[in-house]
């Protein structure tokens, strides 16, 4: 049985105080883990799809995203 998405510990965390809603992360995320909210800020919608590739973190101009696990860059 699949664990509901909201109960998964997400490898991706978004600091909404720093996020300016540019949309880079959810545009570049290859597995669509992130989506934009009504302010176009990033929210984690599908943590179970995260491969910890860290593309979102590396391209967040505002250092608002942290991805646990995955390759050290």
């Amino acid at each position: 049985m699949a664990i509901p998405a909201e109960q998964l510990k997400s490898p991706v965390t978004v600091n909404l105080a720093w996020c300016k809603g540019c949309g880079i992360c959810y545009s570049l995320c290859p597995t669509k883990v992130l989506i934009g909210n009504e302010l176009s800020k990033a929210v984690v919608a599908h943590p179970e799809l995260c491969t910890s590739c860290r593309v979102c973190e590396a391209h967040c101009p505002d250092y608002a995203i942290t991805v646990e696990g995955g390759p050290k860059r």
């Binding site: 105080a17 300016k20 809603g21 540019c22 949309g23 880079i24 967040c60 101009p61 505002d62 250092y63």
Partner: peptide, 11 residues
């Protein structure tokens, strides 16, 4: 957070 505009890639 820094002063740069949303989406500016300076960061």
């Amino acid at each position: 957070p820094h002063i740069w505009c949303p989406g500016c890639s300076n960061g």
